[in-house]
Design a protein around this nucleic acid. Sequence first.
DNA 1: ACCCGCTGTGGGAGCGCTCCCATACAGCGA
DNA 2: TCGCTGTATGGGAGCGCTCCCACAGCGGGT
Lengths: 339, 339
Amino acid sequence: MDGERRPTLEAVARHAGVGRGTVSRVINGSERVSERTRQAVQSAIEELGYVPNRAARTLVTRRTDMVALVVSESEERLFAQPFFAGIVRGVAGVLAERGLQLLLATARTAADHERLGDYLVGGHVDGVLLVSLHADDPLPGRLTAAGIPFVLGGRPAHPGAGAVHYVDIDNVGGAELAVRRLAGTGRRRIATVAGPADMPAGQDRLEGYRRALEEAGLEADPALVARADFSREGGERAMRGLLESAPDLDAVFAASDDMALAALRVLREAGRRVPEDVAVVGYDDADLAAGADPPLTTVHQPTERMGGEMARLLADRALSRAAPEGVVLETRLVVRASG
Amino acid sequence: MDGERRPTLEAVARHAGVGRGTVSRVINGSERVSERTRQAVQSAIEELGYVPNRAARTLVTRRTDMVALVVSESEERLFAQPFFAGIVRGVAGVLAERGLQLLLATARTAADHERLGDYLVGGHVDGVLLVSLHADDPLPGRLTAAGIPFVLGGRPAHPGAGAVHYVDIDNVGGAELAVRRLAGTGRRRIATVAGPADMPAGQDRLEGYRRALEEAGLEADPALVARADFSREGGERAMRGLLESAPDLDAVFAASDDMALAALRVLREAGRRVPEDVAVVGYDDADLAAGADPPLTTVHQPTERMGGEMARLLADRALSRAAPEGVVLETRLVVRASG
DNA sequence: ACCCGCTGTGGGAGCGCTCCCATACAGCGA
DNA sequence: TCGCTGTATGGGAGCGCTCCCACAGCGGGT
């Protein structure tokens, strides 16, 4: 296939007229090497085109310089723009700086999930980045038991489960931003299409909605709250429900852009004009928000920064067994025409 | 940290009362082991919770069971929905079936790119998947020289560069689908906002446009063709240009959804109704297409299948040094309201 | 003159696995 | 009874690296 073997550290040592230990020291940047020797070794490396064998190093150091990014593919939403791409981008950038490789691990079925757990606790990676975790996911527990450092994307579902590293986006604050805008532009009957109650993002955005209402001195009417699952179909149902339970609504805060888009459609069908009769604000700043009719006012999440912070936390703190830390990132309101 | 060492193959052998060789044979599924012994080894593995050490295996076999997916991050477009997510999904699924790990490698700067090349030819992966390659990218050359198997996403830019494995999406056919639809619904002055001339996707979609026009017996008027770079801004400029060079146009085929969206805006500004006065068809079936006003008719690309085929080609053919193969996937027209 | 400590260096041991040769043993025909 | 095959098994060698101990050489203090 590819002819002769690649040069080994031994070969470099011979070529430079030094011992193996010395070459190893040069490669790993130990300062216990004279400048002359270092030069000699460096040029030998160059001449031979030497590249260290990672497997051999891993075998003895027990470090793999590899970090896994775990995503549950069952969580379709995660793969939606711009979340996934942003996270990956942020993670990849920071890991590259730290000389770490990114292993992308996805699990579709429960069996996949099991196997993935085996792999991760099998010592094949130095650390793990977890996004889109379900509340009942066994992975954090297994990783903790095996002593594998990890960082969560999103806040821990069980606060009591012990301190962990995590990076979250301020969902409460983001929702407040949205609803405050609605209240600030004179809306008084502000409804919400909320997310599922069993997801932190769903809970927190609803909490933000409530706080902003209270802050504005508006009544918290249960008829103004409908639950859905972040999807377009769910949003459609929820919006129809709202129109019945609270026909006098003059604004809608949807906890996802998909649901906001659905709301737009349902409202138009019902003969309400947006934003004249009803203002609509979404959440995510997805691609489709800008193209919607009318263009959607929405809450932008710093996904790339989130990925970056997660990688940073893992590389700089979790891997060195520092005390767990939580980082919360701020959102930003993108004002367009819908509300 | 994590207490005692993980059990080794040696430990399993002792526990089962056999030799190392036998355990190794069981793990690697050799048939030269008696059923009784196999059972004994299996239960020893289970009891001890043994997981093979990949590094040690790699050290001797020179296989890593790792495949790199390389994306140039400079290519912003790639990270756009739904391309990237689809590819990743398809690749991940097939690799998991084959017991291969997915290493995601991105390169932002030229220096990154250089380092990435070093890494890939350094024997750290068994094979490479390349997407969004620039015509002048040195990676394929380096990989070929180093004897590392790889598969291209998209057709090779230099057909003369020797046969390579690749998976492409039928851009010519996709464009034909779009333009045929326009001609079929009675449009006679069909313009196009084409992609860049130095990208295969740009060239091929323009070629498809031309063929479909000819097929429909329509005149190929240069005033009906404007070039852009697939972006929204570029599309806006190009559409304005078309409105000047061919004010009588009654349809537009845009080579990307972003450009189609821009065209929609420019046309509305110019007082043309879509689809009544001017029909518009896009390309990509991006998220924003469905939310556009009016919802965009567009060409859907099988991105997940593309990723899957790439992984399959690499795992089943390239890794075993089979003769290079090209696979071309078909597109599908998604008819919505715009054209 | 001596010894002590410090820096730079060489190289043995060993990480956990696979490869492969040697060996043990059962079965069978002569 | 004695080979002779063929199959199941044990274990040495070695993959390429890091770790760490040993040691040479050089000042400088006593």
